[in-house]
Design a protein around this nucleic acid. Structure first.
Lengths: 335, 335
DNA sequence: TTGTATGCGTTATCAT
DNA sequence: ATGATAACGCATACAA
């Protein structure tokens, strides 16, 4: 493997000059630049990432940290990742997605990477209200932007969906369609990481129902897909059968549609279905499913830009951003 | 940030000793070990990843390289990633998922990372028959394991599904159920990266049909979800309406089910549907969809173990592994 | 156990 | 205004 010294010798210049050419740190005589570039070409030289990172004190890597064992389908993740990648493509930062595996060891794994300064900054997905990962990041002084937020966000940066407003928008949409009996359905993972964002949604949703003067029944929940389908079927067969169901995530929406179809109920005539979360699946469902708060891509763009601004020492216009919900009405509610 | 020198001073030993304690490279007097460990604790010292990488000549990072803009839903990716992560958790290697963005620049991006020696080895997802990324990896001497394979695999390591056998298994399943008229449906992305694996499937499928003495009509294809639904609807309304449809991936399966439901056709009585690919979605569809070749997790496990073996200099039992297909019969074919 | 050379770029300082 | 030189960052590994 050729080093910068080999290149310097080959080009007949000093290593400093080569470095300046690589990093465009100084203006050099075009002739010199050409010689150096040709030498690099000939030797097929490429600066070692580790050496660069050690010398500069930073790695130019941004880590996207997310739990891998969550119940949601991670459709959000690919949309989000794509958006982040597109922002970073115009910067010097490289993206490394860092899936954290088992819950108990997850924090240690993050702590190891953070303490080793394996990255310059972190995008933290699925932030929960009391998130041990946030403590790790905070203590270490690692710059980070949360997607979602904690109970106490003072001094922290985040980009989040406005869940409260999302719930209101959803409820209002259903109420305007004449629904008065609405139930929320959610899959309850064994995984605490995923739950707390859902918990916030549940709370907001109940509040939104009450604000419209409607009853706010307990949400239907089940740990597995099969159980959830069964639970929704039971609900739809009960006397208290709601006329509309809101699903907290993709899998809940699919379970709901499935339960309805099993019972021979028509959607939306017999029961309307609305899903939270952004998912490319929703338009493909039968019927296409109305969705609220689909801006995974925007969460990605905004959070990535924010983190880059922090790392570049630029002033942040807004360290805490709430994205307004959007409702995409499809056939599962509006026929 | 404390360095190994600070720790050495604090513990009253030399840096070498500290290094030995960290890496358990040598046996030291327990008393010394204790002193060093306490010093590290007090200073909350953690070795810098970049320094370590520079000194050792390797990063202990394994990169999972995959295209991000493929049409498939990347359900495979999360299952696969989880499995890889579980294998690596028992090793010293960390996992960095590296999504490659835009097609034309993807190779350059990979080349930059590879040349910079940002990782020790690569797991290459969605390998295509003529894959420029393979050339990049090959030229650079970077150890890698392909998931999928190329046209010429001599000297290369891969783990792949046995697509030919998968196609036979699928066709046989449908034939045994009495189907004689079977059509393959696929979504055709703008993205060439995704197509060639599908292309192999198409070829195998046609061959399997002919081996059973059946006609092998051209596959139905369309670039977008909406178009594909339309195309399947047209097919199902035509005189040549097949009694069974095989879908090349998740989105094609969902499009097919949707087209059937729109036309009021019952699945599987009026038309049977079978999907290729592994997806946690399949059981959730209405009806639950029969699937062939669902071993994303095993692909992950086997390829990760293989790469670690290569990196550790262990002898490979089998550098080229074909996983036999599995068929999971669900209601979309067996009612 | 210790001392020290080594790996590889970056950047401040000095020389032309 | 350019270019050369040397110190620096941090952990590893070998010789003593």
């Amino acid at each position: 493997m050729p080093t910068i010294y080999d290149v310097a010798r080959e080009a007949g210049v000093s290593v400093g000059t080569v470095s300046y050419v690589i990093n465009k740190t100084k203006r050099l005589r075009p002739e010199t630049v050409r010689r150096v570039e040709e030498a690099m070409q000939r030797l097929s030289y490429y600066p070692r990432a580790a050496a660069k990172a050690l010398a500069r004190g930073r790695s130019n890597v941004i880590a996207l940290v997310h739990p891998i064992n969550i119940v949601d389908f991670q459709m959000l993740l690919s949309t989000f990742t794509l958006a982040v990648g597109q922002v970073l493509a115009e910067t010097d930062y490289r993206l490394a997605v860092m899936p954290l595996l088992r819950e108990p060891k997850a924090d240690l794994e993050l702590e190891a990477n953070v303490s080793a300064r394996a990255m310059d900054g972190v995008l933290l997905l699925h932030t929960q209200l009391h998130d041990p990962r946030v403590e790790v990041l905070r203590r270490s002084g690692m710059p980070f932007v949360m997607i979602g937020r904690c109970a106490d966000n003072s001094g922290l940066c985040f980009v989040d969906s406005d869940l409260e407003e999302s719930a209101r928008v959803a409820v209002r949409h259903l109420v305007e369609l004449g629904h008065r009996s609405i139930v929320l359905v959610r899959q309850e993972g064994a995984d605490s990481m995923a739950t707390s964002v859902v918990h916030r949604l549940v709370t907001s949703f109940q509040a939104a129902l009450e604000a419209e003067g409607l009853r706010a029944p307990d949400p239907v929940r089940a740990p597995t897909v099969a159980d959830l389908v069964q639970a929704v079927e039971d609900l739809l067969r009960s006397e208290a059968r709601p006329t509309a169901i809101a699903a907290a995530n993709e899998s809940a929406a699919m379970c709901t549609l499935k339960a309805a179809s099993r019972l021979g109920l028509r959607v939306p005539q017999d029961v309307a279905v609305l899903g939270f979360a952004d998912s490319p699946l929703f338009p493909l469902l039968a019927p296409p499913c109305t969705a609220v708060f689909d801006h995974a891509a925007e969460l990605g763009r905004v959070s990535a830009r924010m983190l880059v601004d922090i790392l570049e020492g630029r002033e942040l216009e807004q360290p805490q951003v709430l994205l307004p919900p959007r409702l995409i009405a499809r056939e599962s509610t509006v026929g």
